[in-house]
Design a binder for these strands. Structure first.
Lengths: 209, 209
DNA sequence: GTCTATAATCGGATAGAC
DNA sequence: GTCTATCCGATTATAGAC
């Protein structure tokens, strides 16, 4: 009866530990990048002895790859919101909104990405050259069509996407700076909502004829 | 005659070494941040033995502080271009242009800044809370005046400055990503010029009534 | 399956040589 | 004034204990 069964609904030790380590790793990688992160600090934040970490993740790099894989997945999720509307203004607004929401919901993911790019993207370089490049190409084609149809001003679509990425991810990557400029406090939900609307409206007005 | 004089116009060993170390340090700090940077790698790029570095800069942190001090100076330079025009559109365009030029001329400086913010700005935090906060406050007042005069649309000026900082610094901080999306090559001067004009025009149109 | 004592190496800094 | 042999703590990883 109460004898241990093969699998209980209760989380195994492994599940719990992996989650703690993973979360701790996200915060440390986001703060210090791959090179600056130490397994000792990750273990400390995870609340386990340093050596123990290596039982669950063989190497620091293996752990890092797990973390980045999730970031890329989340990025693709947000990107799909560009395709959910047919109207140009609606599609762009939805995409910017989704990127702002992601920056707010998961600033660590954005910072992990930023740190990875800053050091030359040795781990996600392939993703950038394949998945991201393809995504960008096909969406550039869509934007060019809108331009030809007179729905948007003449422009180079890719530099517009760069502006969207920069303006939205800034709210995650430079949160520390914004705090320093906001009396030491993070943006409140109300402040963020104002910022979100303003980013959408400014960028939209910036490309509307 | 040719006997050594107290001070020759020729660079002393110290001058040369300090310059090599300083430049090497900029590139390593830009790539890996303070924590991830190693004095061994800085020495390697400077072309000197690791231990020798410590004769010129006592500690890694002292070297880092020298490097960041220069970055803050350069930032203030670019900021002053906002004040050189009376007309709102001209002032904004000049400022964005100057920030784009700085991102192009000194991408390392921008990346050093980004890395510092990502880890919570322990070294430049004071600068952010005083000099930068003051600069922002006073320029917000100017922008608000322009809004009141009907020269710009209603908006929260600080979020507009964030968009300017994000969109321009992106060309330095995410250069690695742009390369991956540009066939592995950095933006050419021609491409960058197009991007620069587009950033200026999009942001200007974005806030013009 | 889970955890830790310990090895091997790296990294910042110094004492002292030249 | 300039440079390097060397120390010592930090860091990653493993072998083996529980």
């Amino acid at each position: 009866m109460s004898v241990a069964v093969v699998k209980t609904p209760r989380a195994s030790v492994r599940e719990g530990r992996e989650k703690s380590i993973f979360d701790a790793a996200r915060s440390v990688f986001a703060e210090f990048g791959f090179k600056g992160a130490t397994t000792a600090e990750i273990a400390r934040r995870a609340g386990i002895p340093k050596a123990n970490l290596h039982y669950y993740f063989a190497t620091k790099e293996a752990l890092y790859r797990h973390v980045t894989a999730e970031v890329l997945t989340d990025w693709l999720s947000a990107a799909s919101s560009f395709d959910e509307k047919d109207d140009s203004a609606e599609a762009i607004a939805a995409y910017i909104g989704a990127k702002m929401d992601l920056a707010r919901a998961d600033p660590l993911g954005s910072r992990i990405w930023a740190n990875e790019i800053l050091r030359g993207a040795p781990v996600i370089g392939d993703f950038l050259e394949t998945t991201l490049a393809n995504w960008l190409s096909s969406r550039e084609a869509i934007v060019r069509r809108w331009i030809d149809q007179g729905k948007l001003v003449a422009m180079e679509p890719r530099y517009f996407f760069y502006m969207i990425w920069a303006s939205t991810q800034h709210y995650a990557d430079f949160e520390g700076q914004m705090m320093a400029l906001n009396g030491g406090k993070p943006l409140s939900d109300e402040q963020f909502e104002v910022a979100k609307i303003q980013v959408i409206e400014t960028l939209l007005r910036g490309v509307m004829p």
